Simulated scan of single mutants.
Amino acid sequence: MRRKLYGYGGGALLLLGASVLLALSIGSAGFPPAKVWSILLHQLAPGGAEPPWTALEEAIIVQVRLSRVVLAVLVGACLALAGAGFQGVLRNPLADPYTLGVASGSSIGAAFLILFGLQTFIGMYSIPIVAFGTGVLTLLAVFWLARTQGRLGVETLILSGVVVQAFLSAFVSYMVSLSQGVVNEILFWLMGSLSKRNWGHVSMLVPFVAIGLPVLLYYARALNLFVIGERPAAHLGVRVERTKLIVLLASTLLTAAAVSVSGVIGFVGLVVPHVIRLMVGPDYRLIVPLSAIGGGIYVLWADTLARTLLSPKEIQLGIVTAFIGAPFFGYLLKRRKASI
């Protein structure tokens, strides 16, 4: 397993590094990769001769593009990790923060704060904290709807998530209709975007990744045992209810953190862990770390497409991920139906 992790992990990190370098080079002000690399090295080791680029070029790379690229990687890691957590606990490849309504639930909290001008009532973490709370409430509502005679049916759970997501989306639309000067800000959460984000948002997201990733890595072995069923896993020493609670809360926290800075970006948690599972197998000790890297790569390239495809006009990031993820979701549904 360790050899697989080093092999796949090393390859994934190399792909991530190459993606970052290329994404920094792509834009309305095009830069060759060699110049981007030189500017980044100059930031790490300043000094020496006068650099052969202007201060404006350096500012574009470091302050504008690099912050957005890093944020895209972190948002993708959060959403993919959350998807891996949901899929592991629920033993369902169709589960993710978007299809279960947790992402929409988290956006309710953000939209509410924006509508009433309370974004900073307890500091910069106001939106993530409230988004986490509304995300947890949404998850509880989905479970309550899906529970039948004390059991959670997988198909029923997905349908309950779709119902709750539709209701919450309507509620957010209602808040948009009530708003006046903040209509554009609320619409930002509905469609998802990384525009006008900066290093402050990056620093806000880092602690959540630093908490969520180790938690899911710690419970990866338990998630492997969930595949054989909760009762056999309990006989093998897994504290089932505690594991489910902690993994679901960690996944909801990661979702809320991502939504608080980027809005609702759908299908990342669905597509990435499933593709990783197809590549490396069902071992969550591999799926969890590789999902974090793969999610970063996926959202990074989706955001690069969003800001360059119709340049100088920018497409919302959530639209790009939906164009990719919705057909993939349909494919999974068809495949699952055929296997029944």
Rank of each mutant, 00 (worst) to 15 (best):
L213W: 10
S104A: 10
S104D: 01
A111K: 09
A110S: 10
Y8G: 08
L90M: 14
L236T: 00
S173P: 12
R68G: 06
L317G: 00
L118F: 14
E230W: 00
R336L: 06
R197H: 03
W301Q: 09
A170K: 10
Y125R: 15
V268E: 11
M204R: 15
P97H: 05
S179Y: 00
A338W: 01
G109S: 14
Y6K: 11
A49K: 11
N198T: 14
V206K: 11
K313Q: 10
A257V: 11
L236M: 05
V70Y: 07
A131F: 08
R147W: 12
N92W: 15
Q316F: 00
A210W: 03
L13Y: 14
R239H: 15
F226I: 09
I122G: 12
F143T: 09
Q165Y: 02
P327M: 07
P273N: 00
V163W: 05
V142Q: 06
V154C: 07
T134M: 06
G153E: 11
I158Y: 00
V164A: 13
K334Q: 03
H201I: 13
L305A: 02
A322Y: 04
E50P: 12
L187D: 12
A131V: 15
F323N: 05
Q149I: 03
G117M: 08
F132E: 00
F167P: 08
F132C: 10
S104G: 03
G123H: 13
F132H: 05
D96L: 07
G48C: 10
G83T: 03
S106K: 12
A258K: 02
I108S: 04
K334G: 04
L194W: 00
R147D: 15
K334Y: 08
G294M: 15
P232Q: 11
A220H: 09
L140S: 08
R65P: 02
G76S: 13
S126A: 13
V164Q: 08
V238K: 12
V20D: 02
F323G: 03
D96F: 06
L333V: 02
L40S: 01
V182P: 04
G212C: 09
V288H: 05
S195Y: 05
Q165K: 06
S104H: 05
V162L: 06
L100W: 11
L333Q: 00
A146L: 14
P312E: 01
F112V: 13
F112L: 15
T138S: 07
G30P: 13
S25H: 02
A110Q: 04
L270Q: 03
F167Q: 11
F171W: 12
R231K: 10
V227P: 10
L205T: 14
P46S: 10
R221D: 06
Q63A: 02
P97F: 01
A34W: 14
L223A: 00
L145K: 06
Y218S: 08
R277V: 03
L22D: 02
A18T: 04
E314R: 01
A72I: 09
L118T: 08
G153I: 08
Q149E: 11
S173C: 10
I114K: 11
P312G: 02
L22W: 02
I108Q: 04
V154E: 08
A111C: 13
G294W: 10
L15Q: 03
V130K: 12
W53N: 12
T99M: 07
V172Q: 01
S126Y: 12
A326T: 06
G30N: 11
L145V: 07
S177K: 15
A84N: 01
I26Y: 07
A222P: 04
R65E: 05
V272W: 09
A29I: 05
I293Q: 01
V320T: 05
